[in-house]
């Protein structure tokens, strides 16, 4: 269960907090989509959940882990062990091929099982591309690789920041379907920040971030 309780974050030189006493919870294996206008604090929220930054006040907890209190070393370990991330711009390691990118997180965590990685590639339709350099892939293929990477080390939580932002409608639908299905199958919690209504609708619960608060849709 991911829980955020009364989380507040204010950036210097800004009159109002970007997140203001925000509360949010997500049961394990469920998914949530977060929408909101630009600058509403969606990415800041993901940043806090991922442990990149700390809230000014409030509590962020993932099961037994108190994310808001973790030092840098513990936050690194948390991300390695429990977190998968999908970015708008795919963010693949461009010096690697598909297989190396997908298995990177699992090898980093130390739970690399080739069969599971092969299975993931199969489910995402990437089996034939496993030895291709990622730079040679299309946007949709790259994002599917990013999804496989986010899941290969069997994380507890996946955070997706505009995962379909760079894709056309058809590819976006295909990629988001893969993301939600696989998270569901692996009982992984998923938080997706998106502007795309059809992507948002795939989530178990949909939220809107307005004035620093999450409002259920």
């Amino acid at each position: 269960m991911l829980t955020l309780h009364s989380v507040t974050k204010q950036f210097p030189h800004q009159p109002h907090p970007i997140l203001n006493r925000l509360d949010f919870s997500l049961p394990q294996g469920h998914s949530a989509s977060i929408q909101g206008p630009s600058g509403s604090g969606k990415s800041t929220l993901l940043t806090l959940i991922a442990g990149f930054d700390k809230p000014d006040s409030g509590v962020i907890r993932l099961n037994e882990l108190m994310l808001s209190d973790m030092d840098e070393h513990a936050a690194d370990k948390f991300r390695r062990q429990h977190l998968g991330m999908v970015f708008q711009a795919y963010n693949l390691l461009d010096c690697f091929n598909v297989w190396d990118n997908v298995t990177f997180t699992a090898r980093l965590k130390g739970n690399f099982t080739p069969n599971y990685a092969t299975e993931l590639l199969g489910k995402l339709g990437l089996s034939d591309l496993r030895l291709r350099p990622v730079a040679e892939l299309s946007g949709g293929e790259q994002q599917r690789v990013a999804i496989a990477r986010a899941l290969c080390h069997k994380p507890t939580l996946v955070l997706a920041d505009e995962p379909t932002g760079n894709l056309d409608e058809e590819t976006a639908a295909q990629v988001s379907r893969h993301l939600f299905t696989l998270c569901n199958q692996t009982h992984t919690s998923l938080v997706v920040v998106t502007h795309n209504q059809s992507v948002a609708q795939l989530a178990t619960k949909q939220w809107q971030l307005l004035h620093g608060q999450l409002v259920a849709k």
Binding site: A50, F52, E72, H73, D76, K77, F78, R79, R80, Q81, L83, M85, F87, N91, L93, D94, F104, T105, L108, K109
Partner: peptide, 14 residues
């Protein structure tokens, strides 16, 4: 720096 930031996001320490 973006690649390095990505690695940090994947849990690699500074």
């Amino acid at each position: 720096s973006a690649q390095l930031s990505l690695l940090r996001s994947l849990g690699v320490s500074t």
